[in-house]
Design a protein around this nucleic acid. Structure first.
Length: 271
DNA sequence: CTAATCACCTGAAGGC
DNA sequence: TGCCTTCAGGTGATTA
């Protein structure tokens, strides 16, 4: 479900509510959802800050971290009491204030990881897609150093972290690059365009509180609004908003991949 | 190094 | 209604 913009929206909502709270108790309803690899107990720890690394939410405790990955269907809710709908609750963190941080996850893919250090947990996470340290020069170098299809490169969290299936398809459409283009043949001006397209797509979605296709909800239970602006994702066979050609949907790495065959022609050689 | 497949899970939607 | 298949915002392990 959530990619960088959704996780960032959740982070921003959570910070004012959660910072300063003290963990009093952890209730585990599905054991695989909570991975405790810390030598210390989480009870009694104060929440100092919440950061984001790619699609990970990093809750900084007075000692150690609670790292959250929502995968496909994870949801967080912060409330003064238990919600009416208790379905799919996997973890409940009760705070000393009497409030609760509740983790829902219908598909049980997501994880809350309690760890002393971030090194191990984030070892496969590359530079964040919105990091100010990710320069267009560095992005260009990364693309030139790989010989693979640009969509699968952008989906690879070890390279650039935060993009998922929706925003990769949207960014490639915006940059007019076919998802199967091999990274190292993309001309320089297209690399610049792609770099900007990724930033604009992600920032625009954050402004709209993320994209709700089915499960994603903000911490307050609201829906995102960015689905109104999707150009290709979920629009297979529908006319391209730019040229009217039917959007094509194919499978790449077992993921639905959407693009406009006219706006994003496949080039096999450097132009 | 890259690609393909499966595994982890549940629920919604469509065909018959 | 019900059964069956396919699909879904993600990632990690394994095999080719």
């Amino acid at each position: 479900m959530p990619e960088l913009p959704e996780v960032e929206v959740i982070r921003r909502e959570l910070v004012p509510q959660l910072v300063g709270q003290i963990v009093d108790d952890v209730e585990i309803h599905w054991s695989k959802s909570f991975v405790d690899q810390s030598s210390d107990k989480i009870t009694g720890k104060t929440i100092l800050d919440i950061n984001r690394m790619g699609k990970y939410l990093v809750i900084v405790l007075s000692a150690g971290y609670l790292v959250v990955h929502l995968r496909m269907t994870g949801q967080l809710m912060f409330a003064g009491g238990m919600p009416e709908n208790k379905k799919h609750i996997r973890i409940i963190l009760r705070m000393r204030s009497g409030k609760y941080l509740i983790y829902f996850d219908s598909r049980k893919f997501g994880r809350l990881i309690h760890a002393d250090r971030l090194n191990g947990v984030l070892k496969n996470t590359g530079i964040d897609a919105l990091s100010p340290e990710l320069s267009v020069i560095m992005f260009q170098q990364m693309l030139k150093n790989h010989n693979r299809m640009v969509k699968s490169f952008l989906m690879d969290q070890r390279q650039i972290a935060g993009l998922g299936n929706i925003y990769v398809d949207e960014s490639l459409f915006r940059a007019k690059i076919h998802p199967q283009t091999i990274t190292h043949i993309i001309p320089e001006r297209k690399i610049y365009l792609l770099f900007e397209s990724i930033r604009e797509t992600l920032l625009h979605s954050i402004k709209n509180m993320g994209t709700t296709i089915s499960d994603y909800k903000t911490v307050g239970g609201g829906f995102g609004g960015h689905q109104r602006f999707l150009q290709v994702y979920g629009r297979g066979d529908k006319p391209c908003f730019v040229c009217g050609t039917p959007i094509r949907k194919i499978r790449m790495n077992n993921r639905g991949t959407h693009f406009c065959p006219k706006c994003q022609p496949l080039r096999k050689k450097r132009q």
